[in-house]
C-alpha cells in the first residue's frame, strides 16, 4: 500500500495526472536558489531554453553567463568562479556535461573539491527522436565513481526543484540528472526530500524495488498491479545515488529479502550497481536489475523506447516475479 508518510499525489494513478519534464524543476529550483543566495550563478553552453536555465536568465540576467558551445571551458570557468566564492550551476545536456568535460570536472571541480553544481539535462533513453548521441546512459556511472562528487536523480519535476535547492545548500560538487520528456508529477510539496535519504513510497513485504528518476513512477504502477495479483512489494525512491542511504535500503531488504533495481541508465555502473556493491559487503539477496543492458539508445518516441529497452512497468513486474522465483529456490 502507498506510504501515507510519502504524501504522494491524490491523482497518483489517474490517467489525467499532469506530466512535466524534470528539467522544469531544475529551472524553478535555480530561480528559488538565486533568490535565497546572491552567490548563485548559472553558466550555460548554448542550451538555455532546453535546460531551462533561461528561467534564471530572465530573473537574474546579471548572474547568468553564456559560454557558447564550450562545455570543457564551462566546467573550469565554474571552478574558477567557485574558487572566487560563487556557487556556479553549469547547464547542458548530460552527454556533454558531465560527458565531454569529464576530466575538467574531475580535476578542476572534484579534486579541487569546489562548490560547483552540474545540471545534466536530456538524460536517459526517453530523450526520444534525437537518438543515441543525445541520450545520456552512462552519466551516473561517470559521476558516482568520482570522489567528492554527490549524485541526485530526481523522480519528478517537484523533486527536481527540491533537489536543485538542496544542491545549492550543500558545500561541494553535486551532479543533478534531468530528463527531457514530460513525466508524471506524482509527488507533492509535502513529500519529504532530504539529501542522502531514500524514501519509502510504497510499503510491502515480499520484495523491495529500489528506483530512481522518473521510472520510480513505473515502479509504483507495477506494484499497484502486482498487489492485485497478491504480491506485496515495497518501493523505495532512491533519489540520492551518492552517498547511498544504506540504512533505509538495508532495513527494507532485511524484511523482504529480494531486490529489483530500476533506472534509466546502463545497469553497469549505475544506481543499481551502487546498491549491489553495498549489499555485497553487507547482506546478500537475489536481485534483478531493470535498466539499459549494455546498449546505446536510438531514435523513437519515449514510449517506444521505454518498451524496446524493457523499462516500463510490465518489465518491472516481470523482474519482480523472476526475483520472487529465485527467492523461493
Amino acid at each position: 500500500m502507498v506510504n501515507p508518510q510519502a504524501y504522494l499525489s491524490e491523482k497518483l494513478f489517474s490517467p489525467d495526472i499532469e506530466k512535466v519534464p524534470t528539467r522544469n524543476g531544475y529551472g524553478e529550483g535555480l530561480v528559488l536558489s538565486g533568490e535565497k543566495n546572491k552567490n548563485v550563478v548559472v553558466l550555460c553552453a548554448d542550451l538555455s531554453e532546453s535546460t531551462r536555465s533561461e528561467y534564471f536568465q530572465k530573473k537574474f540576467p546579471e548572474r547568468f553567463i553564456e559560454v557558447g558551445v564550450a562545455e570543457q571551458n564551462m566546467a573550469s570557468l565554474a571552478s574558477g568562479m567557485a574558487l572566487a566564492g560563487k556557487i556556479p550551476f553549469i547547464s547542458s545536456y548530460a552527454t556533454f556535461s558531465p560527458g565531454r568535460n569529464n576530466e575538467q570536472i574531475r580535476t578542476t571541480i572534484a579534486i579541487n573539491n569546489v562548490n560547483v553544481k552540474i545540471g545534466g539535462a536530456h538524460a536517459g533513453i526517453s530523450v526520444g527522436p534525437d537518438g543515441a548521441t543525445h541520450q545520456a546512459l552512462e552519466d551516473m556511472a561517470l559521476m558516482r565513481v568520482m570522489p567528492n562528487m554527490r549524485v541526485i536523480s530526481p523522480c519528478d519535476a517537484l523533486e527536481a526543484k527540491k533537489a536543485t535547492i538542496a544542491a545549492a545548500e550543500i558545500e561541494g560538487p553535486v551532479y543533478l540528472r534531468f530528463a527531457r520528456a514530460g513525466t508524471p508529477l506524482f509527488t507533492t510539496e509535502k513529500t519529504p526530500f532530504h539529501f542522502g535519504k531514500a524514501e519509502v513510497f510504497w510499503i510491502g513485504n515480499d520484495v523491495t524495488i529500489v528506483a530512481s528518476g522518473p521510472l520510480a513512477y513505473e515502479a509504483l504502477l507495477a506494484v499497484s498491479l502486482l498487489e492485485k495479483e497478491g504480491v506485496s512489494a515495497e518501493v523505495i525512491n532512491n533519489h540520492t545515488v551518492k552517498p547511498l542511504d544504506k540504512e533505509t535500503i538495508l532495513a527494507s531488504l532485511r524484511k523482504t529479502k529480494a531486490l529489483v533495481t530500476v533506472e534509466e541508465h546502463q545497469v553497469a555502473g549505475g544506481m543499481g550497481s551502487s546498491v549491489l556493491e553495498m549489499l555485497a559487503q553487507n547482506f546478500q539477496v537475489p536481485a534483478e536489475m531493470v535498466g539499459i543492458q549494455d546498449r546505446f539508445g536510438e531514435s523513437g518516441t519515449p514510449e517506444e523506447l521505454l518498451n524496446e529497452f524493457k523499462l516500463s512497468h510490465p518489465f518491472i513486474m516481470e523482474a519482480v516475479k523472476k526475483v520472487l522465483r529465485r527467492k523461493k529456490t
Partner: peptide, 27 residues
Amino acid sequence: RKFGSRLQGHPERARLPGMETTSGPLG
C-alpha cells in the same frame, strides 16, 4: 527520426552505408 529507422535523429555510421561517421555532439 522514427523508431527502427536508418535515418537517426543524429547520424549513425553503422546504420547507414555512406554516412562515414557518427555525429551530433559538436566539434
